[in-house]
Design a protein around this nucleic acid. Structure first.
Lengths: 345, 345
DNA sequence: TAATTTTTCGTGCACGGTAACGGAAAAATA
DNA sequence: TATTTTTCCGTTACCGTGCACGAAAAATTA
């Protein structure tokens, strides 16, 4: 019943609704005294703008640019798509259009080009996965200058000015990974499979995860040995070769972890080798990983809901664009899901 | 761009928008000729009413009744509240009001009364947790007769006519629980603590969970013994007495499970007894359970997001009420989350 | 044919919010 | 002090739809 409208706010603060509208949208032309008074009244009355009335009145169509790495089917970055599509559905009646720009995550120039393409559209907001830290800084500086709000997904960069961020707490996730491996009986040896395209990449997104993993072991199982095996994801035979060599040298190892989403790449080896009772933990719910989970070859996957990240990011931006309302929480960690074969749906 | 409005339809059919509105809502007072013409134009122009404008203009407020068990703070059924509140926020601008009716889950008559109270309000939709199966059947028959859509949460009853349902797959969750206990080293003995108010209750909601648990053990650890200890939740000293007796008789048992949300009740005993290296698995993210997780006294919680269930249920209903749009999926199983101390947030 | 009833329809305000327009008051300048 | 500029804010016309009011048109009756 007691819906508070801007008319109520206007009356209660002794101004007209035009003025209330001005402070709601942060436009200028309002004295400090009035603004303060109005904000107080808004707070006291618990006013919340009616989104529908709002977009009915202001119908300019705006666009949100989503800048993510490109992907081939089945890759990690594809997981964002589902959330983007969900979000598109909910915001398109608000006259907000979503424009995707993708880049090659291993080529800086490609990232630059994607940013430039995004800016051409004159977007009202930007969602971005900041794989290239330094370059992203430059880009966000430009966004700030133009007053375009932006949201980080996957990871964030340390700076001020972003509207919100979504991601997994990487350190925590590494810690959790080690905890799960260590779950019942403490383990003496763990094999960490590093399936990375570029061992010496400047900014490896999984570095925090490795630290969390290392710290858990140091604190809870200091006697445990951690072996690293590096594998080239582009060479399909590298897996069998290197893992084969490893297991002939260390036949007793029963714990395996990876720190990125590529655990599925070792599945063929596991199937062929016939080693039993392995505790294998990986990350991210790629279809191939889920499949491995179902088969019992991977014991646990830790996932971070990229789709949710995307959906939330777009939601935050549209709320900000339509209502100039900042999201409730700025830094959001999505829940780390623990998936086993019985709760993978 | 080319959004067609009522005014366009009116102009194209040579009448006023009032007349168009009349045919849109099936009100009378329109000549057969005009009606026909208008319908033709609507079809040709592909006119679709603007839901938001419509909602803004129409003053009829509709209500959704939510019929759930009553609770004292910290109890399982309180977890639904958060989702209800979230949903209220999103649907209240649609002039949809949410009315809660609660009942005593152990008294049939109380459930009946709650249903009757709900009907008095002449609700446009109903969310219901069908703890009393038979009685719920009678109630939903009445709803169907009156054309009122309804959604099940927590569990559903087998019938046709509900709009959608949300719940945890109980059998699966029991299976998962046993799997987690059995995670690394197979266990030989498991203590199942049954903290139930009424041992002989007709429809124990956790019965499916018990079956899943039993089946996992039978299939994967047939040599394992399962001990049941029954505890009266109303008698605070019963826990210490019975568990004390159990552990003095079976000092080697290290695996504990419960099947409802009351695992926190055994925490004081665990703390005092000082038994180490226990693998304790329970259900549901009650604050007290989370607390026990943090302290390391409970190893894993399996949760079902009651808040999400409530939010989805209300969303489905309002979409149906406002747009007559049926939800995408009818039977929905919420994801079973595995919570450990490192991902409980 | 005139008067009356009934049918059919146009008009205008409301919903809650947006934003352009222009005027009054305050501040700055002459 | 008079004039100009700036700051601040009220007014107003929408957005697309719902609905009440009353008037015109058609049908009925006298």
């Amino acid at each position: 019943m007691g819906k508070v409208t801007i008319k109520d706010v206007a009356r209660a603060s002794g101004v007209s609704k035009g003025t209330v509208d001005r402070v709601l949208h942060g436009r200028d032309g309002v004295s400090a005294k009035s603004r303060e008074k109005i904000l107080k009244v808004i707070d006291e009355l618990g006013f919340e703008p009616n989104v529908y009335a709002s977009l009915l009145a202001s119908h300019k169509s705006r666009s949100v640019a989503v800048i993510l790495p490109e992907f081939t089917p089945g890759e990690f970055w594809e997981l964002y798509e589902a959330g983007i599509e969900r979000a598109v559905k909910t915001v398109s009646p608000l006259n907000i259009e979503v424009v995707r720009e993708s880049y090659n995550q291993y080529e800086l120039e490609s990232f630059r080009a994607a940013c430039r393409r995004a800016m051409k559209n004159n977007p009202a907001g930007v969602v971005i996965a900041p794989l290239f830290k330094a370059e992203t800084s430059l880009f966000t500086a430009e966004l700030r200058e133009k007053g375009i709000p932006y949201v980080f997904v996957d990871t964030k960069i340390e700076e001020d000015g972003y509207l919100s961020s979504y991601g997994m707490p990487m350190y925590r996730s590494g810690y959790l990974c080690a905890d799960i491996l260590n779950f019942c009986k403490p383990c003496n040896e763990i094999l960490v499979v590093r399936i990375e395209r570029d061992k010496h990449r400047q900014s490896d997104p999984t570095v925090g995860r490795r630290e969390g993993f290392r710290d858990f072991i140091a604190e809870n199982a200091p006697e445990c040995t951690v072996h690293n095996v590096f594998i080239d994801p582009k060479d399909p035979e590298d897996v069998a070769r290197r893992l084969g060599a490893f297991f002939s040298e260390h036949p007793g190892v029963r714990h395996i972890a990876t720190f990125n989403s590529r655990i599925h790449l070792i599945v063929p080896f596991l199937e062929k080798s016939g080693i039993k009772d392995l505790a294998v933990v990986g990350f991210d719910n790629l279809p191939a990983n889920i499949e491995a989970l179902r088969k019992g070859l991977v014991r646990v996957l830790i996932t971070q809901h990229p789709d949710e990240q995307a959906a939330c990011a777009i939601r935050d931006l549209s709320e900000y664009i339509v209502l100039k309302k900042a999201p409730a929480k700025r830094d959001n960690f999505v829940h780390m899901d623990i998936l086993t074969r019985y709760n993978a749906d």
